[in-house]
Structure formats: structure tokens, C-alpha cells
Design a protein around this nucleic acid. Structure first.
Lengths: 143, 143
DNA sequence: AATAGTGTAACCGAAACGGTTACGCTGAGC
DNA sequence: GCTCAGCGTAACCGTTTCGGTTACACTATT
């Protein structure tokens, strides 16, 4: 299924990490996201497995970005969080041999495949650096 | 949220009803969908409230299409089943005043809005009659 | 009156996500 | 070498959503 709150939360925290530039503990990140450290470790763990962040154990440990903001796209984060399609295609599989079911499914599959491909292209075209830039612009305007 | 199995199932059953042309009981429809009559009434009830089918109680009652297949689009069925957007946009609302969260959300919102609008256009452009035609072509090829 | 239908409420079960607790492992600093 | 701050992970719970099921009221035809 689509990443539910995780993609947005990870974008948020990765951009912060990129802007701050240093190392952050799960504890501090949990505060940023209004959640708790275990959830942070679970989610960042997936990003570590995809080479986006690194973790260090022991005293003084924590998490850091191991790519620069312009080397990470939204799609990279999405792919790290969940395998498979972003959109969940709502198909029925009650009567695989029924041509009416087949035709109904095909319409839905094709529409969703096109929407999915659009989303993937959007995600791939957006880097964390662009989000960071938007955020600093927004912040300066607001201030 | 997106209609989970209901949209596909309703397309399936509406096309069958259109092709058969008569009245169907919840019981028979439940058999078509491998489910049970209560689920059928729940779901078809939403379509009735949107003027797509009509129901009659009492002996000899049942459900019938009150529009022809070419007057009903996939979007009509979707709208009858669930209000609001088809796609669920996965944004975070932990820190509404944080510009980084705002910028992350904005990227996701824009990408999903475009994908949603694509889906809506696809759904609106497809009538049940087209599904019926695809199904009969498929059936004749297979046969 | 009997019967074949819809209409609806109430409850259960499965799946997914997030929150929480608990405990093990690791490494820096004293 | 001990302590303690940190990650790693398993286990469990609560919530939500959808589908399945039972139960019962209502209605219209025969």
C-alpha cells in the first residue's frame, strides 16, 4: 500500500538533517516528528538499508545523511520505504474467467498504471535540495 | 480513502445487469460477486442514492439499472461509493508551522493532485458501455 | 396469511499503521 | 572494566477500514 505518513515524515526529517548537517539521535528526531524513538529507528532503518542514511551505535551514536540533499529524490525515499507500486490498484479477483470482471479490472489497471507512472516521474524529478530551497524561501517570506 | 474492492465489484455487476437487462435480487448478485446479500445491499444502496440503480422491496423485488450503460461512467460509480478524493494524500501534520514540513507536504500534494486529476479524467472518460464492449470482444476471442 | 424481497443495525475478523514497552547489543568515556 | 547513551528488534496493543455474518423490521405479491 502507499506509505501512509512515513514518506512525508521522512522527507521532513531528512531535509532537516541535511540543513543541520550533523548527527541526530532517534530521541531528537522523535521530538521533531512528535513520535517516539522506536518508530524513528524502524523507519530510518529502511533508509539505512538503501544507503540514504547511516547509523552508529554506542555512546555518541545517532543518524546522519550519507548523501547530499541534491543526490536524494523523493522516489529514492519512497522506494526505500516500500517495495512495489505506490498506488494500490483496487481490482476484484472473484471470477478470473469472467470477461466482464476482466474488462472492469483492465480499465482500473490502466488508469492507475498511468497515474502511478505520473507519480513516479514527479517523485523522481524532485530532490530533497528542492524541498529545502522551498522551505527556506517560505521561511524568509513568512519572517 | 480509495474504494477498495467496491468500485471493481460494482462495475462488474452493473455491466452484467446492463447486459442482462432485467431485475436482479441481492441474492443472485451476491453469487455473482462471491459475497453475501447484505454487502450487496449496502453497496448498491449507495448507487441507488445517486440515481444509478433502483430497488424494489417485497416479493418479486430486486435491483435494476435505471440508466443505460452508456450513460454511466466509472467516475459516476466512484463518486457514488465514496465522497472526496480517490487518492489518499500521505502528508504529515505534526508541525503546521514548520516550513520544512510545509515544503515536503507541498511536493506530495502537488504530485498527488495531478495524479488524482488524471484518474478522474480517465474515470470520467470511460462508460460502462465501453467495458461491456471490451468484455464481449474478449469473450468472443476466447471462445 | 405466507413468502420473497429490501433496509439496517450490530458484531466479528483481518490487515495495516503507529505507539509503547521491554530487552539485548555496542561503543565512548571515566 | 564499568557505566551509560545510543541503536536493533521483538512483542503487544489501539485504531481504522473493509468485508462477512447474524438478526430483525418492513413491504409487497401471491
Amino acid at each position: 500500500m502507499a506509505t501512509d505518513g512515513r514518506l512525508a515524515r521522512m522527507l521532513h526529517v531528512l531535509v532537516h538533517m541535511g540543513l543541520l548537517g550533523g548527527k541526530e539521535t532517534s530521541e531528537r528526531i522523535a521530538l521533531m516528528l512528535s513520535t517516539n524513538p522506536v518508530v524513528v529507528r524502524r523507519t530510518l532503518g529502511a533508509l539505512r538499508d538503501h544507503g540514504i542514511v547511516a547509523s552508529e551505535g554506542g555512546r555518541g551514536g545517532g543518524w546522519k545523511l550519507i548523501k547530499s540533499l541534491d543526490q536524494v529524490t523523493v522516489l529514492d525515499v519512497q522506494r526505500a520505504l516500500t517495495k512495489g507500486p505506490i498506488l494500490h490498484v483496487p481490482i476484484s479477483r472473484d471470477h478470473p474467467s469472467c470477461p466482464v470482471e476482466w474488462a472492469s479490472n483492465r480499465v482500473l489497471e490502466q488508469a492507475h498504471a498511468a497515474a502511478e507512472s505520473y507519480l513516479v516521474r514527479s517523485y523522481a524529478a524532485t530532490t530533497l535540495a528542492q524541498i529545502a530551497k522551498d522551505a527556506t524561501v517560505k521561511a524568509s517570506v513568512t519572517t
